[in-house]
Design a binder for these strands. Structure first.
Lengths: 132, 132
DNA sequence: TCATAATGCGGGCATATACCCGTAAAGCAC
DNA sequence: GTGCTTTACGGGTATATGCCCGCATTATGA
């Protein structure tokens, strides 16, 4: 139980919290990682895989594969980029709509966490995590 | 960058910290998840997959697969359990030896984190993570 | 005792994630 | 302009992780 390994504690918390978000997003047919990807794609407009990966702090190949799944879902579209080699990712209409629908639920999860931890705690947590 | 999603922040921190531990353990040919599994198997002696999964707060099938990799590595052995259906996992001599070798390095990583965050911060972080 | 329920696993399926290698395209240096 | 380097990807390989289903075994209750 009480593994003193900081990393194990962190990983466990990450899994648990992820599943909370996943459960909340489940009615929309997406999970947290996909929600995050979709939101970023909407925010950055047409964006290359490399830039997206950099923004999300994920490996490019990871983003590429995850994006492909969402292309299959019809939430994201891949078009030609500035180059012959570059892919430009953008949201589809359905992607935008889904994001708009899901965001209030996501916000509720965030709010619930705020409420559970109490004022200032989330900021404290974010700061500590940033220092890691 | 500043994704305000608490979960994304947490996941990112988890990935980053994991890669720190992974890098430190790399000379031993194992990663953090494997180190954690090995340590728990050593601690619990002969233990079933189900109990191990419960202790690690992981899905049983995940533990089963991860353990299989370590059986291939010769660090863990699977034997008959109390039942016909139960598998008993235990460390091999090599597994024990590797754990003993790797633990000081793991401790150094922990210590470095302590030093980086400053006194009390780690406890604070652990508490916050536990409340999630 | 016998049928039903619970337990312990394995395997299939899917996502998430990273690293490495190869290919194609673009940039640069001379 | 030719050749080397950098950039952008795709695909292969591997681990991590969870869920569901099916099978075998054990426990339970009528």
């Amino acid at each position: 139980m009480k593994s003193r390994c900081y990393c194990i504690t962190l990983r466990r918390a990450s899994r648990r919290l992820t599943s909370t978000y996943d459960a909340a997003l489940e009615p929309f047919g997406i999970n947290l990682a996909q929600y995050s990807l979709l939101k970023t794609v909407v925010r950055l407009g047409p964006v290359s895989l490399t830039d997206l990966a950099h923004t999300l702090d994920l490996d490019r190949s990871t983003v590429g594969r995850n994006a492909r799944v969402m292309v299959r879902m019809g939430l994201i579209a891949m078009g030609p980029g500035k180059d012959q080699r570059e892919q430009a990712l953008g949201p589809t209409a359905r992607g935008r709509a889904l994001l708009a629908e899901a965001t209030p639920i996501w916000a509720k999860v965030q709010h619930d966490i705020d409420a559970r931890l109490g004022p200032g705690k989330v900021e404290q947590l974010q700061e500590l995590l940033a220092e890691l």
